[in-house]
Amino acid sequence: MDHISDHVVRALWYIDLCAKQGQPLPFESIDRFAQQEPPRGTQRLSIISGLSRMFEESGPRVGRPDPVADYLLAVQWITKDDQNLVRLTKVGGAVLAASGIASSQIDAQDPEVADVALDPQDPLVYVQLTRRLQKAGQGLLVDAYFKAQSIGWLIESTNLRRVLISSRHRSSEQDRQQIAVALATVPNGSDLEVRHTGDRALHDRCVVGATGEVQLLGSSVNGVGKHLTAVITPSDDIAAVYRTKYEGLWQKATVVAPQPVTA
């Protein structure tokens, strides 16, 4: 963006990335990142460009970029909680979106194709997953091992409004108790409905979109960022089978009721 320094936009992108991966950035870490010049990749230099580089490096040094943390807070592009952790405000998110950096970073790695690999070594892996889930609108996430810690991210970053989990695995009772508390305490938790089923037929992970499209997930949401996995769009006939199967299980499943914490 012409009116905002590149390192300011880069700081906004990094703050947003960390928050969406469940690791909000401490306020004091913002300038440490923003003022550090990223390392250059390998380059092949011609004789002319090599001489040009020599003259550049022998010329006057440009100082480090100015600090940005206090500025971002002053213009209300970020907000800081009582633990000194930061997130973008709606205005900050709008500025980042207008800059185009987020979409250009994702588009370089996640073009409009049916399938995408989610590599744990990719720093944008959760951004890519979020983008895929956003395409489902107010759809259904089927994830047997879905955990309470993913509820905030799901509500804040996607429009999914239903989650179907399993009650058959060893930690399912504890998971449901934690989910019930999260639904009652996480902001806008009432927007999400979670149901559980003991049906053996629930063994896949997928997203059924609001308009019926299906995406298959190679692992539980909890495993993204830990293991190599993928999001795959099946053919229409296979998608229809998944859609019918899991919408049927949803109708018969039991609601996980929000459980407020009492003193």
Rank of each mutant, 00 (worst) to 15 (best):
K80N: 14
K80W: 00
D81S: 04
Q83I: 00
N84W: 05
L85H: 07
R87G: 07
R87D: 14
R87L: 10
L88V: 09
L88Y: 04
L88G: 06
L88P: 02
L88K: 08
T89K: 09
K90G: 03
K90E: 14
K90T: 13
K90N: 08
V91F: 12
V91N: 13
G92P: 04
G92A: 07
A94N: 08
A97P: 00
A97L: 09
A97M: 06
A98I: 00
A98P: 00
S99G: 01
S99V: 02
G100S: 07
G100N: 03
I101T: 11
I101M: 13
I101Y: 05
I101H: 06
A102R: 12
S104N: 09
S104Y: 00
Q105F: 03
Q105A: 10
I106F: 07
I106W: 08
D107A: 14
D107F: 05
D107M: 10
A108R: 13
Q109H: 03
D110A: 13
D110R: 07
P111H: 10
E112Y: 02
V113N: 08
V113P: 00
A114Q: 09
A114V: 03
A114T: 04
D115G: 02
D115M: 04
V116S: 12
V116E: 06
A117N: 06
A117W: 09
L118R: 05
L118K: 06
D119Y: 07
D119N: 15
D119W: 09
D119K: 05
P120N: 05
Q121W: 00
D122A: 07
P123N: 03
